[in-house]
Computed example of a mutant assay.
Amino acid sequence: MRHVSTVRQFDLQETTRLIERAEYLRTAKRAEIQKNLAGMLVATLFYEPSTRTRLSFEAAVYRLGGQVISAENAQENSSSKKGETLADVFRIVGAYVDAIVIRHHSSTELEQAMPYAPVPVINAGAGSGEHPTQALLDVYTIWRELGRIDNLSVAVLGDLKYGRTVHSLLRMFAMMSNISLKLYYPEGLGLPGDLLSEMAQAGVRVEHAASVEEALAGADVVYQTRIQAERLEALEEVCAASDYAIQAKHLSVLPAHARILHPLPRVGEIDPAIDPDARAAYFRQAENGLYLRMALLEQVLKGELS
């Protein structure tokens, strides 16, 4: 039994294996895979709002022949509102199911509670900490779009301080070779110091751009994110999305082979006029999450994670 809590537990070999399995599941006939999780029950506990992550996990379970019980808005609609600890939630829910997929508002509380779960727990986003399955599907998307996951120039824009998807993805990049980052973010929302140190120790080159145009120029991958308004510690941290948004006019500096990713939802950071452009990969990225999470659920529930 193995929890999925951080991208640090995945190496390149395992990531590659998940990508290959996701590719198989993408084209496999439904009848061939419907028994893969037959008889298994997964609980999805979401203490924060979610569309793509929750629905793709639940769809993944059903496509593999399993069943789902779900608690949406669990912060308000479960005994957590009465003060029940997450450790006790895991003890109880873990007695009913074969695995738990959870999104929680506190990365610390989630990490401390995981040892009390009698079944595997998958982190589906924890506060401003990590979102490991998003990073895995992001890497899968880069591989599908560009045919490689190394030797990349990556522009990362938006809220880098609270953006858990950024934190996980950059830790994945730290495992790869010849990665360079160009960061552009609103004042006060840059990468946490410990993550910058991790990048330096891993040999990832980091530059800071002064504009959207400078960030996009020469990039292989653009990773845009929204302001995490729900996590801002002070009102003065709020800034206009237009300050770092990608507009159609910016595409002139973006190489033809480049791809634009976004974990979604977007709230003004990417002009919808860009959507038809072949470089806009964010909706394909969201679809990829289904197949990557199918592959991960198979491994978790079959006990095959190394």
Rank of each mutant, 00 (worst) to 15 (best):
R226N: 09
L169E: 04
A217F: 05
V221L: 02
H208W: 08
L235K: 14
E233P: 03
G203S: 07
R205S: 15
A200Q: 15
L183R: 10
M172L: 10
E187T: 14
V204H: 07
E187W: 12
S211A: 06
S177D: 15
M199D: 06
I179R: 04
G163P: 02
E207N: 09
A217W: 03
L216I: 01
H167L: 08
K182Y: 06
E198G: 06
Q228W: 01
Y223C: 00
Q201W: 03
E236P: 02
E230C: 07
M199H: 08
A200G: 10
H208N: 15
L216G: 00
Q201C: 05
E230T: 11
V206M: 01
Q228H: 06
L181E: 03
V212F: 13
G163K: 00
V206E: 07
A215E: 00
G188S: 11
L195Y: 07
S180N: 07
M176L: 14
V238M: 15
L196Q: 15
A234F: 10
K182D: 04
A210K: 11
E233A: 14
A219T: 02
I179V: 12
A234H: 14
V222I: 14
T165M: 01
A229H: 13
G193N: 14
A200N: 11
E237G: 14
Y162E: 11
M175F: 11
V166H: 03
M175D: 12
R231S: 02
M199S: 06
G203A: 08
S153I: 02
E230H: 11
A219G: 05
E207W: 00
A215K: 00
G190H: 03
R164H: 07
K161Q: 02
M176K: 12
Q224F: 01
R205C: 13
I227A: 06
L170Q: 04
Y223W: 03
R171P: 02
L195G: 07
V154N: 01
E214Q: 12
L160H: 06
I227V: 11
V166M: 05
E236N: 12
A202I: 13
T165C: 01
M176R: 14
A217Y: 03
R231G: 04
H167K: 11
